[in-house]
Amino acid sequence: MAKHRGRGVATINYPIGMNLGGDPSQALVHSNPTGKFTVTLSSIDLGQGMKSVTRQICAETLGVPVEDVFVDTADSDTGPHCMGSFASRGTHRVGNAVMMAAREARAVMMEAAAEELEVDPADLETDGRGAIHVKGAPHRSIAVRDVAIAAQFRQGRTIAGRGIFLVPLSDVDAETGEMTPATCYAHACFIVEVEVDDETGDVAVLKMTSAYELGRALNPKLVEQQLVGGSWMGMSHALYETPEPYYPDTREGPRDFNEYLMPGPGDICPHDVAVLERPASDGPFGAKGLGEMCANPVLPAVANAIFNAVGVRVNELPITPEKVLRALKARGGAVPARAR
C-alpha cells in the first residue's frame, strides 16, 4: 500500500456572454455639480467584482481618477436594464455599456471644458488626475470640478451619458447546428499534481499550475481572486461535491453543510497562475471574462492526474475515494504511468 503522485492537464476555452447573444445591458453615467461621477446600473455584484470593474472602466474612459467614480447598483427604479450576472457576461457586456455611457459623458465634459478654456474640444485631453488641459500645453488647464460647476451653473449642460451593449440575437440551424454562439473566447491550460493513496482511495491535490488568457486583466487582483477561488471550486467539483452521490439513484443526498462536502482551508494547495492578455476586438479594453471558466479545466485535469498516478480512469464525478478504490480493485492495484 502506497501513495502515488501524478500530473494531469486540461486545456479549455470558454464563450463570453449568453450563447447566441441577445443579452443586452445598459448603463448611465452622470456627474454631480462638483465633478464626481456616478455609474448607475441594475447589474448584480455577487462577489465577482461588478461594481469595481465597471468603476475602473468608467474612470479610464472619462479620464478621471477612480476615486471620482462610484457605481450604484442595483435598483430597478434608477438602474437601466441588464440581463443579469451570469454566462461570464458582466465584464464584457456591462463593461461595454459603461464605456459607451462614459464616452458620451466625456464628450459633454470636454465641450464644457473647451467653452471655459475657449479652445476646440478636439484640442483637449484629460490627465487622469482630475484635470483637463490643452494638448501639448499642460498649463492651459481646468479642473474637472470646475468644468462640472461651469456646466451645471453657467452653461446649462448635463455631463451625462447613456450606454447599451447588445450582441444581436442570432439563430441556430436545426439540421447542422450552424450558429454564432459568442464573439470572443477565453482560454486556459491547467496542470494539477495529485497524490493518490491506494489504500484509502483518497486523492490529495498538491499543486496547481495554470495559464489563463482573458483578453485583458482589467484589475489583476480581481482576476487573481476569481482564478484562485474558481480553481478551488473546480477541485471541489472534481473530488468532493454532489447532492446525489449515487446519481441517478436519488437516495443518500446531503441536506446541509455537515453532509455536503467541500475542501476546507486545510485541503487547499499552492496555485501558480499566469495570465495572458490577447485583447478581444469587441471587449472593453479587450477584456473577455473569467467568472465561469476558471473552474472548468480543474475537473478533467484532476481525473487525468489520478490516471497518471495510479493508472485508473474514473469517468463519473465526483471522484470519491470509493470510486477510486473500486477502480483500483478492478484494475488489480495501482499501475503508475510514466512519471511526468
Binding site: Q225, G264, P265, G266, I268
Partner: peptide, 20 residues
C-alpha cells in the same frame, strides 16, 4: 493554527488562501 481556527467557517468564493 489559522487553518484550524477557520475550519468551521465556509467560504464559497475565495478558496481560503487569501483569508489564511
Amino acid at each position: 493554527d489559522v487553518v484550524e481556527a477557520l475550519g468551521g467557517n465556509i467560504c464559497r468564493c475565495t478558496g481560503y488562501e487569501p483569508i489564511i
